[in-house]
Simulated scan of single mutants.
Amino acid sequence: MLDSDDRAILRQMQADPSLGVPDIADRVGMTAARVTRRIEKLVAAGVLLGQEAVIDWAALGFSVHVSLRITLDKTQARAFDEFIAAARAVREVIEIQTFLGRVDVRLSLVARDLAHYQQLYRENVLTLPHIADIEALMDVANVKSERRLPL
């Protein structure tokens, strides 16, 4: 699906997301117009989903990061849909993942401190619908967080 030119462009974009098209073109040995067309094709194909800002939550005062592993009461037909809709409404939830297995959902949330986390947990998490079991894992250190693919 990807040829060597596409891979070269993607490698440059992953290595330095702040690069503009002219800089990418210089680094991969193509014209800016050709790189632009390639990027447009990658977007149209769904390979490139967009660009995003990576935010350091701690720098904004959110020093507590917790991962909640949740098992839902699957005897309720709409448990997943209702739970996810309610979880999306919690502003401090920054990621929602669903799984197959004993754990159904993982919520990733941020809080300013432990007191704020305790408040969020009591007022926003425990009130989410259809929770059968919940396990909280507090992040101690982020050893590796990589979204780059080896292209």
Rank of each mutant, 00 (worst) to 15 (best):
T98C: 09
R78W: 03
G50P: 02
V103P: 01
H130E: 09
L100C: 06
V93G: 08
D56A: 10
I39C: 02
D133K: 14
L107Y: 10
A45S: 12
W57A: 15
E52T: 13
M138K: 14
L137E: 13
A85F: 02
A79K: 05
L100V: 05
V43H: 01
D73L: 02
V125C: 07
I94N: 11
T127G: 06
A136F: 06
H130P: 09
V43N: 01
L48T: 00
R122S: 12
R91W: 02
R38M: 04
V43L: 07
A86H: 09
V110A: 09
D133L: 08
R122I: 01
D113L: 09
R122P: 00
A87W: 12
E95W: 01
L68E: 09
F80D: 03
K74P: 02
Y121N: 13
L107N: 10
I84A: 05
L48C: 02
Q76H: 15
L114S: 09
R122Y: 09
N124Q: 15
L126F: 05
T75L: 09
S67I: 13
V47H: 08
E123K: 11
Q97V: 08
F62C: 05
K41W: 00
I70T: 10
I94F: 04
D81M: 04
I39W: 01
R37K: 10
L128F: 04
L68K: 00
L137Y: 15
S108D: 15
L60N: 07
A86I: 06
E123A: 13
T75M: 09
L120N: 03
A45Y: 04
A111L: 05
A115K: 03
Q118G: 00
R112C: 05
A89E: 15
L137R: 12
M138V: 15
E92F: 08
